[in-house]
Design a protein around this nucleic acid. Structure first.
Lengths: 215, 215
DNA sequence: ACCTGAACACCGTTCAAGT
DNA sequence: ACCTGAACACCGTTCAAGT
């Protein structure tokens, strides 16, 4: 409804990135499930088939959305740290912050396998940083994917967790069948920032140890 | 079609786990997108509303599927290693193997936030192993989630990668804008087993370093 | 009490028919 | 050449009407 508002108005040609940005805004307000080609068309005041001239299908749109998201990571990263450990951690933190800033961001990025500019630039930047660690090239590559996989997995869990489910979890644990889980303080489980800092520290320490290994 | 075959036949009441297992088989053969309540009902020779007496909605079914998958991890793990590092690595490997054995396994598990028996048992087992590392309880918890997040992220990427996209990636890199990426041998990028071994070694080495840190 | 058929309110995607 | 309206073949979910 209300597509008349646009009729007759001169409009600049619709760009794929504009569509992707509007789609991300829809996800932000209603979650990934609420993203619909129909709703997206309505939000852009465009007919439904117009979207299919820009994207072959919904998956192609999701790929572009992931690309758009990842394009913001480098701008957010402060890569002025003195050591490669600091700089790698800063890039990982920027990726996490970008994913967290977008509702369902990890699901958007994790559901695609893009080989577009932003993704490759991000990977190349991480490789440049890890190259300073004097790791052989293949290990630097593996180190980069290890860091990215960790960040994605961690944000995926954080964005999937809801207050209600956390309470359910706490209740299940109190029944005594999971003694180790019950022994750990629950506030710490959902302290996602502290968890992430820990994980990054573990990974960078492990990479340092890997550098010391001479093959 | 063909629901007549079941009519009049005495049948045992349908169990939720049976439904979940059949659903996983459907995903195995056609991918997660092909899993439909209608197709699932047909595959079970059951009317569509019957599924809704067992599950409130499709998400509840997916939760049960994740639980069913994770229930197989411990049986697959060889936890007889001498050191906690070996045992933690073995459990992580068993989780990876379980997810890889099921098409779209990482997406099934990553898309849910279950606090059911199998999930909690898995977490508790990992905590028991990490407890031997003399980490304080909260760090042991964080270490467990770090390992699980890493495994999930890694399998998510592996299962998302297809041959065609890998070629596309290789082509993008050859154009010279990503010098670091271009400098690394491509066979190694898709050697997922080697990547995972590397990641697990880095994580366990990092955890060992964390143990040495006295707060 | 249980199960069925049929519907409701949507989807992603495509295409003939118009201008 | 481009855009539109309308359809196609599905979805997840619900419910009145039957037995």
């Amino acid at each position: 409804m209300r597509t008349q508002g646009a009729r007759g108005r001169a409009r600049t040609p619709l760009r794929a990135e504009t569509v992707a940005r509007t789609a991300l805004a829809l996800v932000d307000s209603g979650g990934l499930e609420s993203l619909t080609m129909r709703r997206l068309a309505a939000s852009l005041e465009v007919q439904l088939p117009t979207l299919y001239r820009l994207f072959d299908n919904k998956q192609a749109l999701l790929d572009e959305m992931a690309e758009t998201l990842l394009a913001g990571v480098l701008a957010r990263a402060d890569l002025t740290g003195d050591t490669w450990e600091e700089r790698a951690a800063a890039l990982a933190r920027a990726l996490r912050a970008t994913l967290l800033a977008q509702r369902d961001g990890a699901r958007v990025v994790g559901g695609t396998y893009t080989a577009q500019q932003a993704t490759l630039t991000l990977a190349d930047t991480m490789l440049a940083i890890l190259g300073e660690a004097e790791l052989p090239p293949e290990k630097a590559l593996w180190a980069a994917t290890t860091l990215f996989s960790y960040v994605l997995g961690e944000v995926l869990e954080q964005q999937g967790a809801t207050g209600g489910e956390t309470e359910l979890l706490a209740a299940s644990v109190r029944d005594g069948r999971y003694p180790r889980l019950a022994a750990t303080p629950w506030e710490r489980f959902v302290d996602f920032d502290a968890r992430f800092d820990f994980g990054i520290r573990v990974l960078t320490a492990g990479l340092r140890a890997e550098c010391a290994r001479r093959p």
